[in-house]
Write a protein that binds this DNA or RNA. Structure first.
Lengths: 226, 226
DNA sequence: TACCTTCCTATACGCTTGTGTAGCGAATTT
DNA sequence: AAATTCGCTACACAAGCGTATAGGAAGGTA
């Protein structure tokens, strides 16, 4: 399996890299605000001062993590694309499997509004993908490619961002290998079946056209007991 | 429009309610960690001590917000369901419009792993919806109803959770009325068109069966420059 | 040898935060 | 009318945080 390589012993990494990895671990697990520089330093096996020495501030450390994430995902994407053993049909699953080590951090970053370049790039890739899908489509799209790609990207990412809720409901850790199997199958099943018929879609569109010219959205009554 | 009511003047609310509303506002806008009790108190027009008096602790205040969110969404859901002016076909859009005042907070709560009961309830509703859709489906589902409902729910929530990224890319605030129009149309278009053909789905499933019995997922080489 | 840069630690500062406590006025109860 | 509760404020505290600074050890360079 050409893309597979042993990740180096943490002992072999430079302190800077260890700090970054520790930061991604903690940021991914507890979020940016709830993790302290001291915790990161502790799991990296260095002093807290060194964190500042290498990254300047907590915010800059986060940006370094984001940059590293983008770099890694870009590299993995290239690797998977270049690898002939992955047909383009199971490309999605391969890409998801590839980004597994960074999923936790990626999910947090996305949820917290960080990692903008990564989101943008994913939209770009989805655009290419959708543009191709549009060619063997009977009816013309109702909205522009960019918007549809954005929504599709968000949907794909949602399973990462909300994996805690999902795991709780399903009863399986979706970030584990078994959970990933289950999730992949569910995604395939959903992706290959429209949730709405074309007729219903037309009906809703018509309803939308009507609503568009009516007064602003409804507000609602508050609690009586307050 | 029967469901529409004027929301009461903030001046008319009890301090407790004002605090809760202010908390939902700030939590929704900046997240739980980044908002301070003092900020909440300030926008509620009360002292910070009163916040503690009414809610005990910041965490309990959050829980009160979650509870209120659940209550409101449940109520709005009942209203929309009971209202005959909404056909069940544009039910989804109506529900989204209905929850607008709470979208920001809801998105944060979901992303931060809070509001479990609400997610669970949404899954339950999606299960009912999917069960019906399953009846006019040619092929049998590959995974259980619960799992598919969970994934579908997460997807539906993604547009809320990632609305910042999406708005940035699209160039329109998706929480605004115009953005909502655009978003609705995009969702309808996506929901009414499978992103993957049944043949491709079968192919990927087959690939998954093969992968299932091979060694653990690939790990990747680290940066050479560290 | 002397000097400088790089990597790293130790310690401390200043600020913000959530939380605790004391107390006041008004309404309600007895 | 007295007592008690309730809504609310003001003030203080202890802890934890990010950040800053001073300095030591190692290694290269002149």
């Amino acid at each position: 399996m050409p893309v597979t390589t042993i990740s180096p012993d943490p002992e072999d990494l430079t302190a800077r890299a260890r700090i970054r990895d520790a930061a991604m671990l903690h940021f991914g697990e507890h979020g940016f605000e709830r993790t302290t520089i001291r915790e990161i330093a502790a799991t990296a096996g260095v002093s807290s001062g060194l964190v500042r020495h290498h990254f300047g501030s907590k915010q800059e450390l986060r940006e370094a993590c984001d940059a590293h994430l983008v770099k890694m995902v870009r590299r993995l994407n290239d690797q998977v694309r270049a690898d002939a053993t992955y047909s383009d049909v199971n490309y999605v699953a391969a890409a998801r499997a590839a980004t597994r080590p960074y999923q936790q951090y990626m999910a947090r970053a996305m949820a917290e509004g960080s990692a903008e370049p990564l989101f943008d790039e994913m939209v770009r890739l989805t655009e290419e993908w959708l543009a191709e899908a549009d060619r063997n489509r009977p009816d013309p799209p109702d909205v522009d490619l960019r918007t549809r790609a954005t929504v599709s990207t968000a949907m794909a990412l949602s399973v990462m961002v909300l994996h805690r809720h999902m795991s709780r409901v399903v009863g399986v850790d979706l970030l584990s290998p078994e959970g990933d199997q289950l999730l992949s199958r569910a995604l395939i099943d959903i992706y290959s079946h429209p949730l709405m018929s074309l007729e219903d879609a037309a009906l809703v569109r018509a309803a939308l056209d009507k609503v568009q010219h009516t007064p602003p959205p409804p507000s609602f009554e508050e609690d009586p007991d307050e």
